[in-house]
Computed example of a mutant assay.
Amino acid sequence: MFDEKTRMELGLPFPKSAEPPQETAKWQKLIGEADNEVLRRFVMLRHPPEHYHRYETRTPYRLYRTMAPLHDDSILFMNHIVAGAKLFAAEAQAIWAVAYWDKAFRFLPLPEREEDVSRMIAWNKRRYLSNGELGNFAAFDSVPVWHEYLAQRQAK
Score class of each variant (00 low, 15 high):
residue 1 M to S: 12
residue 3 D to L: 01
residue 4 E to M: 02
residue 4 E to P: 00
residue 7 R to V: 00
residue 8 M to D: 01
residue 8 M to P: 01
residue 9 E to G: 01
residue 9 E to A: 03
residue 10 L to S: 02
residue 10 L to I: 03
residue 15 P to L: 02
residue 15 P to H: 02
residue 18 A to S: 10
residue 19 E to T: 08
residue 20 P to W: 07
residue 21 P to T: 06
residue 21 P to L: 09
residue 22 Q to R: 09
residue 24 T to R: 15
residue 26 K to C: 07
residue 29 K to V: 10
residue 30 L to C: 10
residue 30 L to E: 14
residue 32 G to W: 08
residue 33 E to S: 10
residue 34 A to Q: 05
residue 36 N to V: 09
residue 36 N to G: 13
residue 37 E to W: 13
residue 37 E to V: 14
residue 37 E to A: 13
residue 39 L to W: 06
residue 39 L to N: 05
residue 40 R to M: 15
residue 40 R to Y: 11
residue 40 R to E: 08
residue 40 R to L: 13
residue 41 R to L: 10
residue 42 F to Q: 00
residue 43 V to Y: 12
residue 43 V to H: 10
residue 44 M to E: 03
residue 50 E to L: 15
residue 50 E to C: 14
residue 51 H to M: 15
residue 55 Y to H: 14
residue 55 Y to P: 03
residue 55 Y to M: 04
residue 56 E to G: 03
residue 59 T to D: 01
residue 63 L to H: 03
residue 63 L to Y: 04
residue 63 L to T: 01
residue 63 L to F: 07
residue 64 Y to H: 00
residue 65 R to G: 00
residue 66 T to M: 09
residue 66 T to Q: 07
residue 68 A to E: 00
residue 70 L to K: 04
residue 70 L to E: 06
residue 70 L to R: 05
residue 71 H to T: 07
residue 72 D to V: 05
residue 72 D to P: 05
residue 73 D to N: 15
residue 73 D to Q: 12
residue 73 D to V: 03
residue 73 D to T: 06
residue 74 S to K: 15
residue 74 S to Y: 15
residue 75 I to R: 11
residue 76 L to T: 08
residue 77 F to Q: 08
residue 77 F to V: 13
residue 80 H to T: 05
residue 80 H to V: 06
residue 81 I to V: 09
residue 81 I to E: 10
residue 81 I to P: 05
residue 82 V to Q: 15
residue 82 V to L: 12
residue 83 A to I: 10
residue 83 A to F: 11
residue 87 L to Y: 08
residue 87 L to E: 10
residue 87 L to T: 11
residue 89 A to P: 01
residue 89 A to Q: 04
residue 91 E to H: 10
residue 91 E to I: 03
residue 92 A to M: 08
residue 93 Q to I: 02
residue 95 I to F: 06
residue 95 I to E: 09
residue 97 A to I: 00
residue 98 V to N: 01
residue 99 A to G: 03
residue 102 D to W: 12
residue 102 D to R: 12
residue 104 A to L: 08
residue 104 A to W: 09
residue 104 A to I: 11
residue 111 P to L: 05
residue 112 E to C: 10
residue 113 R to D: 12
residue 113 R to G: 07
residue 113 R to E: 06
residue 114 E to R: 14
residue 117 V to Q: 06
residue 117 V to D: 10
residue 118 S to N: 09
residue 119 R to H: 13
residue 120 M to C: 07
residue 121 I to N: 11
residue 122 A to Q: 09
residue 123 W to P: 06
residue 123 W to E: 14
residue 125 K to Y: 13
residue 125 K to P: 06
residue 127 R to G: 02
residue 128 Y to R: 03
residue 129 L to C: 04
residue 132 G to T: 02
residue 133 E to K: 07
residue 133 E to S: 12
residue 133 E to P: 06
residue 135 G to C: 05
residue 135 G to L: 04
residue 135 G to F: 06
residue 136 N to G: 11
residue 138 A to G: 08
residue 139 A to R: 15
residue 139 A to C: 14
residue 139 A to Q: 09
residue 142 S to W: 07
residue 142 S to D: 15
residue 143 V to T: 07
residue 146 W to C: 15
residue 148 E to T: 14
residue 149 Y to Q: 00
residue 149 Y to I: 01
residue 150 L to T: 12
residue 150 L to Q: 06
residue 150 L to I: 14
residue 151 A to L: 11
residue 152 Q to G: 02
residue 152 Q to H: 09
residue 154 Q to I: 03
residue 154 Q to C: 09
residue 155 A to T: 04
residue 156 K to C: 04
residue 156 K to Q: 03
